[in-house]
Every structure is written in C-alpha cells, then in structure tokens.
Write a protein that binds this DNA or RNA. Structure first.
Lengths: 140, 140
DNA sequence: GCTAAATGCTGTAGCGACTACAGGAACAAG
DNA sequence: CTTGTTCCTGTAGTCGCTACAGCATTTAGC
C-alpha cells in the first residue's frame, strides 16, 4: 500500500472534507493553523480547496487521535509515513511508548473504578446519617 | 513568651498547608480564586493564614481529585458535606455518575490497548517495508 | 543589627486539543 | 434577486492546573 501522496483529483471545500472524514470544520482549520495539515490552495475568493491527498492525511490524523496519540506523536508519524520504506523502528517506538502510557492510565482507572464501586456499593440508603462516599473523602 | 509562629489551633502559612496536604501552593491559590476553597484571613502584610478547617477542606478536595471527580462535582460534594446528615442520596447520585464515566473511559481505554498491543505486536522488525502501525493509520 | 535565602504576594500567560462564537463575505437554490 | 447556507478571520473559552515575572516580607545565620 502506497504512502501518503498528493493526488490531483479532489477539489473539495472544507465542509465536504469535514463530512468525508468526520473531522469538525473548526478542527480542520485548527490542524492547519498548528501546521499538522498542509495548507491547501485557495480559490480566488479565498476559500480552501482540498484534494484527496489532504483527505488521506486528515483521515490518518483522525485515526491517530482515535487511538489516543497526541498531536506531537501524529506529527512525527506523518513525517515517518511520507518517504517510502521509512524507519518502521521509529514508528514502533512511538506506538510502544503510547501503548505504555495507555496501560498506565488503564491501571490507574481500574484502581479508581474499584474504589468508587466499592464505596458506592456501600451506600445502603438505609442509614440516613452515615454516607460512605463523604466518609471516604473526609478523612479516609 | 516566645512569639507565636505556628501551632496555634491552625494558623499556618500557605507553604505549610501545601506540605501538609500535598497540594501545590499555586493550586491552593487557584482553588481560592475559583471559590472552591474559602479565602482565609490575612496577616497585616497580606499573607494568607489557614486553620485546620481549611486543611480539612483542602484534604477533602484533594481526595476528590485523586478519585477523578471534577471541580464542579467536588464543589457540590463540599456543599453536601457541610450540614450534618445531609442528603446522602445526592452524594450517591454524583458518585454513581462519576463511576459510570470512569467505567466508560475504562472500556474505551481497554479497546485502545487491545488494538495498539495487537498492532505493535505485529511489528516484525524483519520486513523493512511493511509497517503495521502505519498501515493501520493509513487506511486500515 | 545586617544580610541572604526562603517564602509569600498579584497578575498574566501557557499547556492540549479543541470548541464556540462574532461579524462579515461569498456562493447555491429557488 | 432574495434567502439560506457555507465559508472566512480572529478571538476567547473550556479544564485543571502550572509557570513565570517582578516585587514584598519573613526567617535564619552570623
């Protein structure tokens, strides 16, 4: 499968690109502003006209975001994706680091879930005075 | 008769409160600014002097944050905690809603972890051309 | 008493990753 | 030709802090 290249076909407005990729219009402009997505050419009236290369790049960005990669990571991944046969090892390093971060968050959230569910589970609705949730917050 | 520095029933400076609660000084001032923590009295020179009530409230806030509650939730929980025997049902509602949110995030993260680990696991380091990570991002 | 270091103060700006306007210009459909 | 939609720029807001800058005050050592 080819890497991301600019093809001449396309020529769509920002709203259409938004609909095709599922990325908010404001977000597309935001990506352009921070230099993540290439600035497209403009019509005489100043409107952005995107081609399929942009669409592919934006879809790439979107998948990356859905997988929880940060903007900096995606920027690096996009750079690594453009020359054919580029360093897969570097890509793996980024993905592995992200996976580690996801696992750390997962552990953290699981711990949270455990504490919260245990505490909420002790809410009896019978004793109107003692509140296990407040008890935990107020002094362990 | 030594000068009273600390150790009256409270009467601590912000740095000491910070050390006691583990909450950053800037964060304590931030909590005051947004009206989460009561503004303490000041010395003649304008320095904040906290008592044990503040310390308790701040510890409460900190535990809430550690459990992932948002500022708005903690504000509500603090209000519900102040009159004795107040509505535990409302507390439970807030905690349950938060627990639901935590569980949703947990599910999401687990899905992410699954996809990422599977993809990174396919990185062979043998084929220099195909990169499973890039493949997934670019149209997979 | 004097000085240096620590601590405190206010106010503002930055982070990440958007989102939400305001106030206008241009385009498409009827 | 009008109306409604799309698009433009620029700015400010979100959340929960964190990090200065540039001072004032307090404390510890000598």
């Amino acid at each position: 499968m080819g890497k991301i290249t600019v093809s001449r076909a396309g020529g769509m407005a920002i709203g259409q690109l938004s609909r095709l990729t599922g990325v908010n219009i404001e977000t597309i402009r935001y990506y352009e502003r921070i230099g993540l997505l290439d600035a497209p050419p403009r019509t005489a009236a100043g409107r952005r006209t995107y081609d399929n290369g942009h669409r592919r790049a934006l879809a790439f960005i979107r998948r990356g975001r859905e997988l929880g990669f940060g903007i900096a990571d995606i920027r690096a991944l996009l750079a690594l994706a453009s020359p054919v046969g580029s360093s897969c090892a570097q890509v793996e390093r980024i993905a592995q680091a992200h996976l580690d971060a996801v696992r750390a968050k997962l552990t953290d959230l699981a711990r949270l879930e455990h504490i919260l569910s245990e505490t909420v589970g002790r809410c009896t609705r019978q004793d109107p005075v003692a509140c296990p949730v407040l008890d935990m917050l107020d002094g362990g």
